[in-house]
Design a protein around this nucleic acid. Structure first.
Lengths: 113, 113
DNA sequence: TAAATATTAAACTAAATGGTTAATTAACCT
DNA sequence: AGGTTAATTAACCATTTAGTTTAATATTTA
């Protein structure tokens, strides 16, 4: 299946290096070298991670002399957050109902059925 | 790198079939066959998706005769949501600051620098 | 023009993913 | 015991992923 935006976003988030890069970019633009600094892996490896983030549209890259500064793109991340938030509500509803049931059971054990 | 919980969670979410399964499970427990029904793929394929969800601890499986009902496990999903929410705040802060700056620039163009 | 810096491309490898079909296990029902 | 239903395992395949090292490209600076 050709992956949709949401799948690409979650796949991009499924790697600690890429999440750290996004966290850094939340502080503002940075060059590839700056982004690579905290990691032990090679520069091409970081470059590949950036390409993954770019293909998933989580970052955009500018150009300034020999640097290619990266900038966060918030929208797809917001969509992923929304998806999770939406289902969070459903799960919590379910747990609320379960809580209600357990509470009712305590107060009125005969209502069980 | 051996993947952490958060990476496993996002990786599990990076597939539309698995997200649909989670959405279904938000409505309540279901058997493998029930979960497989909406999809065109084979049962073993769905079984594998469930194994991915189980390994990522997004679901737990019970046992009842020949059925193995699946149930949603909310906690890791909540952690993923929290991660995104946390950074959502940072991004939005940044955009707020940018808005402020652009607004100030309009009102007082000489403040640029 | 030549050297240095920043970044990507190429070629390779090992492991993981997502799917298939066929066979197997486990529990139920006659 | 034998058949049916539910689900997993096994064996296989193609593609993707995450990393490596080496080489190439682009831009600034001396």
């Amino acid at each position: 299946m050709l992956p949709d935006q949401l799948s690409n976003t979650f796949a991009a988030l499924a790697d600690p290096t890429r999440r750290a890069i996004l966290a850094r970019l939340a502080m503002g633009e940075a060059s590839v070298k700056e982004l690579a600094a905290p990691f032990e892996m090679s520069l091409p490896a970081v470059s590949k991670h950036l390409k993954v983030l770019e293909r998933a549209r989580l970052i955009v890259r500018g150009r300034s002399a020999q640097w290619r500064p990266c900038r966060l793109e918030a929208k797809p991340l917001a969509e992923a957050t929304d998806w999770l938030e939406h289902y969070r509500l459903l799960w919590e509803q379910r747990f609320d109902r379960l809580d209600d049931y357990l509470l009712e059971l305590q107060n009125n054990p005969e209502s069980r059925g």
